[in-house]
Each structure stands twice: as structure tokens, then as C-alpha cells.
Amino acid sequence: MKHLAAAAFVAGALALPGLALAADYSIMAPAGPGGGWDQTARAMQEAMTAEGISGNVQVINVPGAGGTIGLAQFAQEANGDPSRLIVGGYVMVGAILTNKSPVTLDAVTPIARLTGEFEVIVVPAASDIKTLADLVTKLKADPGAVSWAGGSAGGTDHITAGLLAKTVGVDPKLVNYVAFSGGGEALAAVLGSQTTVGISGYGEFQAQVEAGALRVLGVSAPERIAVVDAPTFKEGGVDLSVMNWRMVAAGPGLSAEQVAAITADVQKMAESASWKKTLETKGWMNTWLAGDDFKAQLAKEIAATEAVLKDIGLVQ
């Protein structure tokens, strides 16, 4: 039945170019419209259609709980179906652990890491904290007096703050982390000097940094990156690097040939001119990593994340 439908879809798409009649890839964004995963899914949709990799691509939003609701639904529905893809990322790794999700990333077939973004710590321009070293001194003196504005508890921002505390010898449990819903609210809180510092992906703060309203104390990259004119954590005396990456995965139960075919399609998409243009306009970094290298990296990050979430006290 499913194959018949798929055949009908393909036939329809070929017979009616221009009229959106069928989908031969459907990408699930396990988040509401507007967020990073949704934008990634829609950018893939655009690139795949524009490059003729796929006649028609559908994006399905299944929001909720750091992507774990979408992931659970996907693992069940996409079993053995090579036309289904799901977008995900580092946030999902943390969410699976904190939500005690019964479905983990083992239940899907990771295809490739696509993009990534580094975290930055910022203060309002008027703040007396000038460098990362100043912040570390304050944090060591009285952890509670340093309030951090960032995204939801257990997300990349929270994990980075916890890791930083741990690296400089402060108990991550003592980090006074204030969770805001959505990047905009956290940014507003820092701009309004409501909290001591703000922590989030650079894209969130970029416009304000360029306008001089915020000062970057440190970037979570291993070495300096072109877009941010600021020292890395390491230069600031904290030996730590964190990346918030986004990936695409396929369903479970696929044959090796099917996985290879999907990987080839995704690779073609990632190397296309329209994808590169998207990366540029959105300021995303290309972090292409596929196959076994990606799987090994993923396993490493899951273990590290579990350790820090235990330190913060979010996972028992």
C-alpha cells in the first residue's frame, strides 16, 4: 500500500511538473515553525527542490519537548521508509536525557551533521565585566550573584554554562541559570541588564554585538572564527569548546543501499549552490560530517552530555 502510494506520488510528480502534487521526501522538523530545526528543514526542502534532487519535499512540524516527541513519532512511522527524514541536533541529545525519553537516537539512522553554531557569553556594553577572566573571578567569589540568561533548562546554553563552571572548579549545581523561552526573551533580558550575562548561539546576539550594545566575553569555538571578533574560551583561560550542531537522520530498518542512496542525496544537497547560499544568508557554519565519523562523534557527545547533566543535577 505504502509503495503503491509512493509510486503514485512519483508518477504524479513527473506528470505534473510545477504543480505540487507529490512528495518523495518528507522531512520532519521536531519543533514548531520558526526555530532552528524548522528553518533547517525548510532550507533543505528548498535546496532539494531547486537542485532537482527531489520532485517535491514536504516539511512536517511535530513540536515538543526538545524534539523528543517528534523523534518518538518518527522512529515508529518511518521504520523501513526511505522517503522519511528528520532534522535534529545537540539540543535533542540533552532533551532525551532530561526527559527520560524512551526513544533515543539509537532508534534512528543518523545520516549527516549539516550545520553548527558556537555559543557566546555576552554582557551589556556598560557592564563592569570586561573579560572572561573577570567573569570567572566573580563566579568563583559568589556563584549565585552571577545570573545567566539562556534557553530552556538542560539545553545547549545551560550545558555550556555548567561545563564552564565545572572547568573553572565551581560546582555546576551552583550556577544561577535563568531559563527563558525563546532566544528573543533571553536577549531582551541581557539588553535590559536584567541578568549578569547572557549565553546563547552567536546568531542570537550578532546584531546587538555589531551595534555595540553587547560585548562578547568568549566564544565556545576551539579556535577563533571569522564572524566573531572576540577571544575563544581557551584564550580567556577556560579550556572548553562546545558546538550546537544540527543533523539529519533517516528512519530505522533501512538497508545499506537505501542509507547510501539517502546519504548521496543529502550530500548532493549540502554541496549545492542553493544550500551554500542559504548558509551564507543565515550565517550558518558548514559542519558536514557523515557516515561512521559522525556516528563516533555522536556517541562521544552523548556520553559527555550525560556526565554534565548529572553534574548540574538535571539527570539522576
Binding site: A8, A15, L16, L19, L21
Partner: peptide, 8 residues
């Protein structure tokens, strides 16, 4: 979908 295809 089939009908639309045939028509087309």
C-alpha cells in the same frame, strides 16, 4: 492524485 495525474 491519480485523477489529477490522468487529467494532466
Amino acid at each position: 492524485i491519480e485523477g489529477a495525474k490522468l487529467l494532466a
